[in-house]
Every structure is written in structure tokens, then in C-alpha cells.
Write a protein that binds this DNA or RNA. Structure first.
Lengths: 117, 117
DNA sequence: ATCGCGCATGCCTCGACAGGTATATGCCGA
DNA sequence: TCGGCATATACCTGTCGAGGCATGCGCGAT
């Protein structure tokens, strides 16, 4: 049975969400964690990683607040944390006008000679 | 009057969207470009950048497909390109279940003792 | 108490950048 | 044609992060 959250206490080398997401291996880890929480060993098996590499990537993801670990005996079970994803969403939101505008223009173009503006 | 698109022809050192977005300066550039297209000099002024730095960041953004430039005499006017943002959106979409689930649980918790599940 | 397992961490090396300076290039105006 | 402007690019330097290896550390089982 899980016991305690493994907090990233203090403000030690906080990592930006963007920096954490810049690495493909870390994005792969997140993809797997989206399915369900995984222990480090499971991630090592499924993603064919060296164990130290996995631990380091997970540490980075932790410092970015993207994941958190629960302690279960010798195992650390990592799970996603929603908050940074919400921030990403918020960052992306203003850019959404870009493609919705593009789609609008496309739409206008399709309905071309019927009405203008 | 603008003349030509400044294509990133060939597959020379394509940069991942994530890599391009990992840099804060580049994100600042995108924020400014969201307002309207800007020439390099305008970006240099508004963001207090060295001119070579601006050109280099813009080159990276170009290789990531996030911006494109139109040539106007000696000036290069950079504007946003929607496509990578749509891809970002697509990447983020599956994670949306995360916080919608969290909100659902919160909601359920608020309506707590009224109905279960 | 001891061993083995699961994981984290320290050290090293290397390649990838960011910032700065200097310089090359295309284009306009006089 | 010439000078100057706007931008790109080459070069250098310092920094940071990823991968690989070895090792430390906590916990459970025997």
C-alpha cells in the first residue's frame, strides 16, 4: 500500500515545463504515465531505458511538477500531475485564434461568392 | 510591398517544435508576433535583443516551422505559422482528460453527500 | 544481521546551444 | 556608383544537459 508523497520540498532547481518537455524521452515517459501510474522499473522495461537515465528524467519531470512519486516499499510509483498541463493549455489558448482564424478564412473562402464578410 | 516567402527549403536541420519553444526569448518573440507580423529590427527594439541574437532565434523558429518571413526590401517581416500550434494542441489533447477528471472529482466532491457516483 | 532488490545520485565526457563580436551580403537612396 | 541600412552568418566561449558507468542507500525477506 502506498504511503507517502515524495515532495519536491523547497525551491531547489525548479525546472520549467518547457525545458522538461523538450526531451523526447521525457515526453515518451509522460505518454506511458498517461495510461496509468508506473514504477521506475516498469518504465525502464517499457521504454527500453537504462535505469539511471529513467531516474534522472523522472527527477527532471518532478522538478517541473509534471509528475509526482508515491513510495511503495523499495518502489517509487510515478504518476502525472495535471497542473503544468493546465498551464500549457493556458499558454496555448491565445494562439488558438491563429488557426481558428485560418479555418474561418478557409470557411469564408469555401462559401466564397455567396456573401462577403 | 512584400515579395516572396523565404522558404526553409530542403530538410536542413529541422528543429522540433519543443526544442524551439524551450527558450524563453523565443517564446517572447512568438508573443510579440501574435499581435502582428514584425520586422527583425522591430523585435530587436521591443524585446531589447542584440540583432544577431534575434536573427538566430528567428532562424530556429523558422526551422521549427513556427514562423515564416516575407521579404520587403532589406527587411524581413516575420509572422506566425499556425501549423505547429495545431500539433501542440493535438499533443496536449489526450492529457486533457487529466484535468477534466480532476475537475469532475472536485465537482463530485462538492456535491458530496447528495449522490454517490 | 545480512543479502538482494529497486532506485537515486555522483562523476565523467561529449555534443548542443545561447550570447557576444566581427563580418559578409543584398538592397535602397543620393 | 557608392554609402549606408537591415539582416544573416561565421567564429569563439561558456554553460548546460544527456548518456554511460559505478556506487550509495533504504527496505523487505530469509
Amino acid at each position: 500500500m502506498p504511503r507517502q508523497v515524495y515532495a519536491e520540498t523547497g525551491t531547489f532547481a525548479v525546472v520549467s515545463t518547457w525545458t522538461a518537455l523538450a526531451d523526447p524521452t521525457r515526453r515518451a515517459i509522460l505518454d506511458v504515465l498517461r495510461e496509468r501510474p508506473h514504477a521506475v522499473g516498469e518504465l525502464v522495461d517499457r521504454l527500453d531505458l537504462a535505469q539511471p537515465a529513467a531516474s534522472k528524467h523522472l527527477a527532471t519531470l518532478r522538478r517541473a511538477g509534471l509528475v509526482h512519486a508515491t513510495v511503495d516499499a523499495q518502489r517509487r510509483v510515478y504518476a502525472l500531475d495535471p497542473r503544468p498541463f493546465v498551464e500549457l493549455e493556458a499558454w496555448l489558448a491565445p494562439y488558438r485564434a491563429l488557426w481558428s482564424d485560418a479555418l474561418d478564412r478557409l470557411d469564408a473562402h469555401l462559401h466564397d461568392h455567396q456573401e462577403d464578410r
